[in-house]
Design a protein around this nucleic acid. Structure first.
Lengths: 125, 125
DNA sequence: CTTTGTGCAAACGGTTTGCAACCTA
DNA sequence: TAGGTTGCAAACCGTTTGCACAAAG
């Protein structure tokens, strides 16, 4: 566990948005000026493989999330904001429905695309 | 409607896998040798915007699907095979649970990652 | 004729990789 | 000191774009 890896993990844990590697990099650089984007990627990918964080892709970019509970995402197609929703029931329901299929599920990804409250109000004016 | 666009759409409709632009390009090239990957992308993206086909991303690649019914995907993490599942109930359930939220849903993406039958059997031997 | 689409080639952008130097256990 | 990790720069690869020409309506 190097200082870089620790810092990256701490940074991710303290955020509730769903940063990309680039976003993490910008923040971490403030404390570790010599760190590289490549290092950030390597560590985030490693942590994701170890199951310590989540990685998911939206619009051809990887986003990361230290929040490991079973949850889903709302993605605003207007402003790009990504929100969490804690509807365990949805995932449970989805998983339950898979039991009969001949497919061994290891992960379910549920993403809702649409308009967040702000953008909806803005658009309706 | 050019011959290129028509051919691309026909090719996509006749397949039940979930090809990438590259895969479509390889097939369509056989009939239209001078067609370009760029043209394939432009048309697939256009058709997706018009809602005539679906576009979704898996492992940093866009996949396309002429199958427009409400359905979900199974992605085998071992061989990459993508299968359809027709569990409308899952999407309906997921959507119903969003009504109370302050988010206007336009699209739900549900993807299951795991092991397909073949890979599961192979791995168990 | 005007608009829209095409082929070509080059650019783009996020991500990964090879390598030598550097930590760190 | 041995093995994993870093910084750097270059490569990668799927996708997009600018442009001049061609086709469509």
């Amino acid at each position: 566990m190097t200082s870089q890896r620790l810092k990256i993990l701490q940074e991710l844990k303290k955020r509730k948005d769903h940063p990309t590697a680039e976003m993490i990099y910008r923040e971490v650089s403030k404390d570790l000026p010599s760190i590289t984007l490549a290092t950030v990627y390597r560590n985030l990918n490693l942590l994701a493989e170890l199951g310590q964080i989540q990685r998911f892709e939206i619009n051809k970019e990887y986003h990361f999330d230290a929040h490991n509970e079973n949850h889903q995402h709302l993605v605003c197609e207007c402003c790009g904001f990504i929100d969490d929703i804690e509807e365990k029931k949805i995932t449970d329901y989805a998983l339950k429905n898979m039991i009969k299929k001949d497919f061994q599920v290891s992960k379910v990804n549920i993403t809702y695309y649409g308009l967040c409250k702000k953008c909806k109000e803005k658009g309706e004016k």
